[in-house]
Design a binder for these strands. Structure first.
Length: 136
DNA sequence: TAGCTGACTCCAT
DNA sequence: AATGGAGCCAGCT
């Protein structure tokens, strides 16, 4: 079995030609990459910015399939995405929960229990920032 | 094809 | 702040 391989520019090659990367997932990953260090965004927000309003759940799905080596040569900071209530969406004390909390705190994002103070840490991009970061 | 499921949201308690 | 229900939507079986 060949692992899913996608070149840096997203072109499928060789044996994986029939295994495709969902293009919508790719857009979601790309959008997540524009969240700045030390900030967080919620699933619905990412869906909107990716041009997929109403598909917050799809963002969760996409984050669960982030390529290990990152996307287009850059890592995908999945841990900067939390739910609209400002909480980490994993069960408290689960392995993923701890990993996400650790990554956030490492960036200076304060996490109390499972909650982040959106008021202080939510990313509120301006138009210029979006045009600069997104290519679609 | 038909359900089922979920890293979601919104709204009412 | 916590909890529960309904709505939602696409991927998976």
């Amino acid at each position: 079995m060949v692992a899913s391989v996608v070149s840096a520019d997203g072109v499928r090659t060789g044996a994986d030609v029939n295994l495709s990367v969902n293009p919508l997932y790719a857009r979601i990953w790309q959008t997540v990459q524009t969240i700045p260090y030390g900030k967080v965004a919620c699933y619905g927000q990412i869906a909107d910015l990716a041009g997929l309003p109403g598909r917050a759940r799809m963002v969760g799905k996409a984050l669960g399939k982030v390529p290990e080596g990152g996307w287009k040569g850059r890592s995908v900071p999945w841990f900067r995405v939390i739910n609209s209530q400002g909480k980490i969406s994993f069960a408290v004390s689960s392995e993923y929960f701890e990993r996400q909390r650790g990554c956030l705190q490492e960036e200076g994002v304060m996490v109390i229990g499972c909650r982040v103070k959106l008021k202080d840490f939510q990313w509120l991009p301006d138009l210029g920032e979006l045009l600069f970061g997104l290519e679609f």
